[in-house]
């Protein structure tokens, strides 16, 4: 599965977690997500997610004027967002734990499967 596909499923959760730590404006959230290890995250995806979570009532928003240039739009978490974060965080943990267990189970050898596939592909192309 593409990393971006995985990311799409958990971006709401990751954005909520970042904003829950501290209020932030769009690019600030992007930077903290990347610093947290989600290097693939796209600017527009994060901005869109912030707008959607705000529209869904999970975030508050306020504008901070800037002397140097255009104003910044900050987002903060509210009670609704905190509740969503707790629920989705719980599902993520159980989901991730289940996948971890599957990957750790004896007899599973995803590396071998991958290797076979790539060998077959190599045979086909040669």
């Amino acid at each position: 599965m593409e990393p971006t596909q995985l990311l799409k499923g958990v971006l709401d959760l990751a954005v909520l977690a970042v904003v829950a730590q501290e209020d932030g404006y769009g690019y600030d959230v992007v930077r903290r997500l990347r610093a947290g290890g989600l290097a693939e995250v796209g600017d527009a995806s994060v901005y869109g997610t912030l707008r959607r979570l705000y529209a869904a009532g999970a975030l508050t928003s306020y504008v901070v004027p800037s002397d140097e240039g255009p104003h910044r739009k900050y987002y903060g978490i509210n009670a609704q967002g905190t509740k969503v974060l707790a629920e989705q965080g719980e599902s993520w943990r159980s989901f991730a734990a289940a996948v971890d267990r599957l990957l750790a189970a004896p007899g599973t050898a995803p590396t071998r499967v991958l290797r076979t596939t790539s060998l077959l592909e190599d045979e086909g192309t040669r």
Partner: peptide, 14 residues
């Protein structure tokens, strides 16, 4: 407006 509001500042910094 909701989508693009604040976008300029974010993009400028990025």
């Amino acid at each position: 407006d909701d989508l693009v509001g604040g976008l300029e500042a974010d993009l400028a910094e990025s």
